[in-house]
Design a protein around this nucleic acid. Structure first.
Lengths: 205, 205
DNA sequence: GTCTATATGATGATAGAC
DNA sequence: GTCTATCATCATATAGAC
């Protein structure tokens, strides 16, 4: 009796894991409880034993997708040492994360578009707040003369936008596969933050 | 008979005008034909006399919302003269547009998240392509040493992100109403592009 | 061109057997 | 804890009267 069946406790987690890509792809309104149930391999009724309703399942799924993702990122900013080295490490890590975990990015986009204020607020509380605060505090240290809040927004936008727009840039001329390389994106952004466009060319240093 | 009834021809446009804020707020899946019909003041069946189906109504609504918005923006980039003056004018105009027309921004976000590839492509064709190409060509002129495509993405991201994230930043500390001032946002971005963070402080020049 | 009425199916959620 | 069966409601879309 010391050994419990390992399968039993995992049902709830299994639901979350399977529903994350669904919500990430088509959003809250685009996913039905039937879809999730089918992805898990149960009937829709079974889901209601683990989650009170669809909204709670969604909130838990988003929280599940973000936990253990934002923590390590925040740590990169907290450490001491050269601020420019830290911001470069943060940007590089974030770019690699976004490139590898596409669901992560899309869930963030869905949160930004959520029109249910109560739901959006609870998502922000569990997902965005800590990381944004850490980045804003770091921005204040990195560039004391600038508005830290505004600068934090700029940094996040610079990193996220290449990935957010990838699905449409595919169709545009001048698009090459290598433009999605997270390391190259990070170098581009750090160069921009350091010197603006007046600095040394990134292509011909 | 030389004078036609001015009301008759406007029905189609009326539907588009009323449906744009609905689609902008809750997206394609969040709006029903009943919602649109109610907003216009007709029955759902009447909508099908003007649009073959919901998707066509959506595509036309997005096109309607973007026409006469992107054209003037593109013109700002095409003109000759000092490139830095032109990019500043473009960024300032775009920021003011985004601040004034919230539906415009949200529709763009929905397009970026659209999981229907055929639909997304047709939206990109009628909405994004021209403006992005103009900006990319301009970026090539502004900073010949940089990857023009990448730089165009960075510029768009810098301008759009303060507005895209406004709905969640409301809940975060350090948020002040004045951070949404499009003129201040534009100055911040131009300063960043010119000098990076190493330049003269924007707050204490 | 808009209406009433309706076909047809998907949706979130629940009751009760096992 | 999961199932079958079902409810009530909502969805897109159409047919045909006016």
């Amino acid at each position: 009796m010391a050994e419990k069946a390992p399968k039993k406790k995992k049902m709830r987690e299994e639901v979350l894991e399977r529903s994350v890509p669904l919500f990430a792809t088509v959003g809250f309104d685009g996913v039905s409880m039937r879809d999730i149930a089918a992805a898990v391999g149960v009937t829709p009724a079974a889901l209601y034993h683990h989650f009170s309703d669809k909204e709670q399942l969604y909130l838990d799924a988003v929280g599940y997708a973000f936990e253990e993702k934002v923590g390590p990122l925040k740590t990169l900013l907290d450490g001491g040492g050269n601020p420019w080295e830290r911001i470069e490490a943060f940007i590089t890590r974030l770019a690699n994360l976004l490139a590898a975990e596409r669901d992560f990015l899309r869930l963030m986009q869905w949160v930004l578009l959520d029109s249910d204020e109560r739901r959006q607020r609870s998502l922000v509380d569990c997902v965005f707040r800590d990381l944004f605060n850490a980045l804003r505090d770091f921005a204040a240290e990195l560039a004391p003369g600038h508005d830290a809040h505004r600068l934090a927004v700029s940094i996040i936008g610079l990193v996220l936008y290449p990935f957010e727009t990838q699905s449409v840039r595919r169709f545009l001329p001048g698009y090459t596969h290598q433009q999605e390389d997270p390391e190259a994106i990070a170098r581009h952004i750090v160069g921009l933050l350091r010197n603006g466009l007046g600095g040394i060319n990134e292509e011909n240093p």
